[in-house]
Amino acid sequence: MVDATMPLRRRRFRVRNLRFWIPLTWIMMLVLAALCAPLIAPHDPLAQDLFLERLPPFFMDGAEPGYWLGTDSLGRDVLSRMIYGARIALFVSVIAAVSTGIFGSTLGLLAGYYGGWWDRVISRLVDIWMAFPPVLFAVLLVAVMGTGLTSVIAAIALIDWTRFARVIRAETMVQAHMDYVDSARIGGARRFTTLVSEILPNVMPSIIALLMLEMGIAVIVEAILSFVNLSISSDDPTWGSMIAEGRGAIHFAWWVLLFPLITLFLTVLSFSTLGEGIKKKFDPVLSS
């Protein structure tokens, strides 16, 4: 019995670890690339060179040495632009996710634990908010605030705080009925103390998982807004603007579209997988 189950268990254990380590490695690589962009990017991401336009990536005929992933229609190096694009993508995703998470989770915790008046007001606000179509919301906001990263971040936070509020409210309500909350209260803990030091640690894994998900979403939203030219100026290297430009040249320079698209896809996937992984790792009961 023990012998029969052991290999299976060990294998499952390893798969779960891979699902944690692969996305983590990818994200760490991105972080590194973003931080050291000036050092590792082979070229200036903005430098145009009409003699080098639409160079294919290194494994195709006609590739130039040094231009690993080819160049775009203006002769700019795709790899360098992607590396600088990681800077913007990660900056936006971290700032947007953290601000969204703090705002939404705080409201969720308050509504879920205090209930009553708090819960009625916050839940109603969430309902009303969610009745707005999010894309329209984002476009409107950018129209009012002007293009730029600040508007992109604000748009993400304003649209997505409801996800945090809803999920964390539900989780908090479950935790609030646990006996350990009563134990803390009998031990003289004030309600706010109970919320922060007893309940919050229990919903933290969910908050982190949502944060990861949100970072993935933020990367996509930033890409979409760049794609429709509502983020920062289109010269700046963002994955979204690269995809937008690559779309026009797909028949004769597919790499300009494909490489940023794959990067975007892998990044979003990594964030959400990592979120689940971290949630499991943080949970002392599940991880033992």
Partner: peptide, 8 residues
Amino acid sequence: LTALNPVR
């Protein structure tokens, strides 16, 4: 089981 906080 439930009277102790699982994460503390």
